[in-house]
Simulated assay, not measured.
Amino acid sequence: MRPTLLIAALAVTHLASQAATLPVYREFKEWLVACSNSGHCVAKGFDQYAGTTVMLLEQAPGPAGETSLTLGFQTTGKVPPQPLRLGGLPLSSEAWALQQEADDYAEIHSLDDAEARKLLAAISRKQTLALTGSQGEVLANFNADGLAASLLLVDEAQGRLGSRNALLRVGNKPASSIPPARALPVLRPGAPGSPAVDDEEAARLLHAVRKLEPDCVMEGDTQPDGEVSALSPREAIVLLQCGQGAYNTSYVVYRTQRQGKARPVRVNLPGLGTLLQPGYWVMNASYDSASQTLSQYGKGRGLGDCGDSTSWVFDGSHFLLSQYSHQGRCGGMALMDWPLLWDTTILPRKP
């Protein structure tokens, strides 16, 4: 290898070694941090089980990664025009934009990366932050308890510690020392499942799976229903209902040959370390034969302000994890807007 290429390769290796193992999900008091396998990080701060205020930080990976901070809060009418202050610090109209589309909710968005980082560093040691109007009136109170630890984790996960573009632990290292975004795994789905499963075939395959899951009984001891879809001309996927709550329905996942006597086998869906356990149980599941994608989501409570969602792509032989989002803390104001922890690049299927 030529010296210049060797130096470049060593530099990339050195940058990659500075960042933490990804993905990352942690909770610190009233905050959570989620960094995906690409290195994109989200930090949220809100009172658990409450939906009056939320602070949302999104930090893109890489030396030029955008820093975006949003303050969302409930209101009882129109928010007065700026100047506004957060924790006593001014939010200038040049660096912050107020958006209010309804009388009961408003958001303040950062317009300048450096100003957002400067504000975060200044307020990180506080526990509560009052948003005040031009007359000193309190418009909302934000919870910053856990913010400092959250910023530090984002810096660590993205290799920002000690750099000029760090969120908390700022140093003299140039922004170029920050590693770039990680490359996403590449998946390619198999050919669309065909021919479609008709009603007679679906009933036969569901019956075969029910015999293997005698404990799957729905409310009132009714026979569990399910969904059967084509994986290929030879195989089908069977989703059998196996329990129902107020807002979640659980399923077991099988695959079986379509011709002859059905011999279903459980599908052991891949997980993601301690974040997502492998297994054949899923929630609120569905399968799309056109994209060969199995999807599921589970609400932590009926509102949908916590929970997780997952998708797997069938590549013609195996199910591969294609996307995973998770939020363990319930609260905030965005429903089913759970931070992304795993993502992939899905290529067009081969002709």
Results as ranks from 00 to 15, higher is better:
residue 139 L to P: 06
residue 305 D to E: 00
residue 347 L to V: 14
residue 105 Y to I: 12
residue 277 Q to P: 08
residue 300 G to E: 04
residue 23 P to S: 05
residue 66 E to S: 11
residue 197 V to R: 06
residue 280 Y to M: 13
residue 41 C to F: 07
residue 332 G to E: 08
residue 9 A to S: 14
residue 134 S to R: 15
residue 292 Q to L: 14
residue 40 H to M: 13
residue 181 A to N: 07
residue 69 L to G: 04
residue 117 R to I: 03
residue 78 K to G: 11
residue 327 Q to H: 06
residue 286 S to E: 14
residue 57 L to H: 01
residue 351 P to L: 12
residue 248 N to Q: 10
residue 260 G to D: 04
residue 93 S to N: 12
residue 305 D to T: 11
residue 325 S to R: 10
residue 337 D to M: 11
residue 34 A to G: 12
residue 158 Q to R: 08
residue 96 W to M: 03
residue 294 L to K: 02
residue 206 L to R: 07
residue 340 L to I: 06
residue 249 T to W: 08
residue 174 P to V: 12
residue 159 G to T: 08
residue 73 F to R: 00
residue 81 P to A: 14
residue 159 G to F: 00
residue 243 G to K: 09
residue 191 A to L: 15
residue 308 D to A: 12
residue 220 G to H: 05
residue 98 L to C: 06
residue 321 L to Q: 08
residue 107 E to L: 13
residue 187 L to Y: 07
residue 23 P to I: 08
residue 71 L to D: 04
residue 179 P to F: 05
residue 172 N to M: 03
residue 30 E to G: 01
residue 301 R to D: 08
residue 17 S to K: 11
residue 299 K to G: 05
residue 233 P to D: 10
residue 24 V to R: 11
residue 100 Q to T: 07
residue 88 G to T: 14
residue 226 G to T: 07
residue 216 C to P: 01
residue 158 Q to C: 05
residue 97 A to P: 03
residue 305 D to L: 00
residue 136 G to A: 10
residue 258 R to Q: 09
residue 327 Q to Y: 00
residue 97 A to H: 07
residue 202 A to Q: 07
residue 200 E to L: 12
residue 172 N to L: 13
residue 59 Q to G: 03
residue 12 V to G: 05
residue 266 R to Y: 00
residue 183 A to M: 03
residue 65 G to L: 11
residue 288 D to F: 06
residue 152 L to I: 13
residue 246 A to Q: 12
residue 311 S to G: 02
residue 198 D to T: 05
residue 205 L to S: 12
residue 257 Q to P: 02
residue 122 A to N: 06
residue 39 G to A: 01
residue 92 S to Y: 01
residue 226 G to C: 09
residue 100 Q to V: 07
residue 112 D to R: 05
residue 331 G to H: 00
residue 291 S to C: 06
residue 14 H to S: 15
residue 341 L to S: 02
residue 188 R to G: 01
residue 28 F to P: 06
residue 79 V to A: 10
residue 194 S to N: 05
residue 289 S to A: 15
residue 140 A to C: 05
residue 217 V to F: 05
residue 120 L to A: 05
residue 11 A to S: 13
residue 235 E to Y: 00
residue 173 K to Q: 14
residue 93 S to I: 00
residue 120 L to D: 02
residue 302 G to N: 05
residue 5 L to I: 03
residue 124 S to C: 04
residue 160 R to H: 07
residue 155 D to L: 12
residue 164 R to L: 13
residue 209 V to E: 13
residue 234 R to Q: 14
residue 81 P to K: 09
residue 1 M to F: 01
residue 169 R to T: 09
residue 57 L to R: 10
residue 19 A to N: 02
residue 143 N to H: 02
residue 98 L to Q: 11
residue 80 P to F: 03
residue 220 G to F: 04
residue 318 H to V: 15
residue 31 W to S: 02
residue 340 L to M: 13
residue 133 G to N: 08
residue 205 L to D: 10
residue 186 V to E: 14
residue 321 L to D: 00
residue 328 G to N: 11
